[in-house]
């Protein structure tokens, strides 16, 4: 891990060999409850068996990512777009896409030209 000062030299010194030998899943700090919470956020209904499988797998991947987590990159800007563009826009001119029927015909359930869903419990956030 970096020696704290975050310099390029420290970063370089901290780097480990690429693709270090991998000896299978290890338990990391990620808990089964955390995995269950994340599944709820992602709206996935994981079975007990899946939770048992996913927890160590995700922990292993996160453990592998620990080197990135540990880097001191306070002064490094983030790259969200590899090719820097700005102010990309289009003129405010309407156009009919003409896809309404094709989409509604394929909807899992439609009624009165709208998408029909089971009762929605709770308001939007």
């Amino acid at each position: 891990m970096p020696a704290g000062d975050g310099s390029e030299a420290a970063l370089l010194a901290a780097r480990r060999p690429l693709a270090r030998p991998y000896d299978g899943p290890r338990m990391a700090s990620l808990s089964r409850d955390e995995v269950a919470h994340v599944a709820r956020l992602a709206r996935l209904q994981l079975s007990e068996e899946q939770l048992d499988t996913f927890t160590p797998q995700l922990a292993a991947i996160l453990e592998h990512a620990a080197d990135v987590e540990a880097l001191d990159l306070a002064d490094v800007p983030a790259t969200s777009h590899p090719y820097p563009l700005k102010n990309v826009w289009r003129p405010d001119v309407p156009r009919d896409a003409g896809i309404r029927e094709a989409v509604l015909d394929q909807a899992p359930d439609a009624e009165a030209g709208m998408f029909r869903v089971p009762p929605v419990l709770g308001e939007a956030p």
């Binding site: 955390e34 956020l41 992602a42 996935l44 929605v120």
Partner: peptide, 27 residues
């Protein structure tokens, strides 16, 4: 309910690797 419909649809519709990556990314 719509909430349960989400859960069932997504769980039935996605394979394990997709679920794993969705979980990882959500986390």
């Amino acid at each position: 309910t719509t909430g349960e419909m989400y859960d069932r649809t997504r769980t039935a519709g996605f394979g394990a690797e997709v679920e794993r990556r969705i979980m990882l990314g959500t986390y």
